[in-house]
Each structure stands twice: as C-alpha cells, then as structure tokens.
Design a binder for these strands. Structure first.
Lengths: 158, 158
DNA sequence: TTGATATATATAGCCAGGCTATGTATAGTG
DNA sequence: CACTATACATAGCCTGGCTATATATATCAA
C-alpha cells in the first residue's frame, strides 16, 4: 500500500502543490487583482458553510486567528460580510456573507473563469471529466489536511 | 465545442482555482512556514528553467518585475540564488540557483509531501493515475494563461 | 560619435496578508 | 465569587504585491 512505491504519492503531492501555486497566482492576475486570495478563500468558506465564528473561519481557511481578524475587518468595512451577535456566547459573533458579498464572490468566480477560458477551452469533454474526477479526489483530502494541521496534537489518552 | 455547454468549462475552472488556493495554503502550513509561496514558486522556476534573467523570472512566476527584484534580493541574502553577470548585456544578470538553493527546494518539497501524505495515501493507483492525468492537462494551460496575461496586447500588424 | 529612444532593472512608497506575543472580555466551574 | 479556560482583539513586525518613477545600458540613426 503506502510502502509499495514510497515516492509515488510524494511526487504527486509535490507536483500538485506546485501546480496549485501557479494556478492561484494566475487566477489573481487574471481576475484583475481587485482583491486578494485570502479574501476569496474566506468568502468561499462562508458561502459553503454559512455564518461562522471567526475562529472556525480562520481554521477552515487555514490562517491564524489574528490574521482572520484583519481579513474580516477589511471585509466588514467593504460590506462583504457582517457580524451577527451570538446570543448564546457574547465573546463571539458569527461572520456572515452579505448580499453584496455573495454577489461579489460570484462575480469574481465568473471573471476568473472568463479570463482563463481561452487557455482551457480546447479541453475535450473526456478531458474535463478527468479533471473533474481528480478534483473530487483532491478536495476532501485538502480539507482533511487542514483539519489534521489544526488539531495535530491529539492527547494519547482520550 | 466551446459553445456547447457554456458553463461547464467555467465552472470547472472556478472549482480548480478554489481547490488550488486551498491546497497552496495547506502546503504552506504543512511545510512549517519557513518560507513563503512566492519564494518556492521562484525557486521552482529556476530549477526547471536554469539561470534566468530577472524579468523573465518575474514573467514565468507571474509577478511584476519590482516584486521579483524584492524576492530575488531576499533569496540572494539567504544564499539560495546568486547573480551571474551576463557579458553580452550589462543591464542584466542571470539569476541562478545555488547548491544551497537546490537543496533547500528539494527539502521543502519533501517536507510538504511528507506532511500531506497522511491525507493522500489512501489513494488507489488508479486514482493517482487520474490525478496525474489531470495534472498533465492543467499544467501546460496554466503556463499558457501566464503567457497570455504577460503579452496580452499583440500588435495587429506583426 | 553622439544624441534619441528603447529596454532591463532598481528604488520609493504604499497596502494587504501572514505571523507571534500579549491583552481583554466573557464563559464555565469549584 | 474567585479562577481557569476560551474567543477574540491589539500591537508590532516581516514579506509579497502593486504602481510610478529613476537609472543604467543597448541600440540605432544621422
């Protein structure tokens, strides 16, 4: 299993990471730079998860809590998200996408996609299926990786 | 062809970009943060392309020239790259990986891969093939996208 | 060869995103 | 009701990102 071909998984991961980095850069340039990667990541998490506390948002988005405090502050200022009081815990507020935030996120996705279409539209339906299949494999594992990093020290006794 | 299912390519691109962003973040965290994404991108380009002028490096890496000047300055300071005079053009020097730079890059890749193996090592060989195939499809198109963004205004007369 | 223009990089100056360390306010508990 | 734990905010620092602009070298024309 994992010891069969020890280098194979690792090489694949390294390649994936490298491609991911270049794609992220490309997307930012293609989208016209209006906002940054961290912002889109945050908005994406909010869109898929709904109102979320700041700490959980940081964890899902893969940044430290103070970093998320800054990002959220910027997003609030620009009206992309709002803070909703959590009546059950007054230390906390839930961060929620506003209508504007929703719209802006969708526009951004459309803009990125539109800008990259010329580079990708020669894909055949079969090739697109391949990419889609790969995405389905990768996505849950990325999420798992984030979780593992967030709670790496698990007490042996539990 | 591309007008058949107008949303399909775009949706796929948007998903890809999103996954790429999350993977990049994950890699940075997993690698222990020693250095940043921009640095690894730059070193990777140097490793695959050999000594390169700063402007070309910026273009390949997808950043503006002054940004690359900064990144290279940092890398030189830390001994990861060196500037080699270009005798044919004194405005220019070639940026080259040092032995240290090479080693550090390889270590980083190994470290990232190692850190992410637990999240990916349940992939079957067939699934890995799928991912590899997708990568082969995506990589050249990312490169193409960068090129298109870099030289977007092509004189009609040429 | 000299002046004009083009090209390659550097510098300046700004802002966002990233971190650690630490402060503050609310929750929860003996 | 004091005490610890938790959730977030603040402070301060660094890097990466940009545009605008300066500088140095090439190149070409007269």
């Amino acid at each position: 299993m994992s010891t069969d071909q020890p280098d194979t998984v690792r090489a694949l991961i390294a390649d994936l990471v490298q491609a991911g980095g270049r794609l992220t850069r490309l997307a930012r340039r293609a989208s016209g730079d209006e906002t940054t990667a961290a912002t889109w990541r945050t908005l994406s998490v909010l869109q898929s998860s709904g109102p979320t506390r700041l700490g959980e948002l940081a964890q899902a988005s893969g940044v430290a809590q103070p970093t998320m405090t800054k990002i959220v502050a910027g997003l609030v200022e620009r009206g992309r998200v709002e803070r909703v009081a959590d009546e059950t815990d007054h230390r906390v507020s839930l961060i929620a996408l506003t209508g504007t935030g929703h719209a802006v996120l969708n526009q951004w996705r459309a803009r990125v996609a539109e800008a990259l279409v010329p580079a990708f539209d020669d894909l055949t339906p079969e090739q697109m299926d391949t990419i889609r299949a790969a995405l389905e494999l990768i996505r849950p594992r990325i999420a798992r990786g984030h979780q593992e990093l967030t709670a790496p020290i698990r007490k042996v006794i539990d």
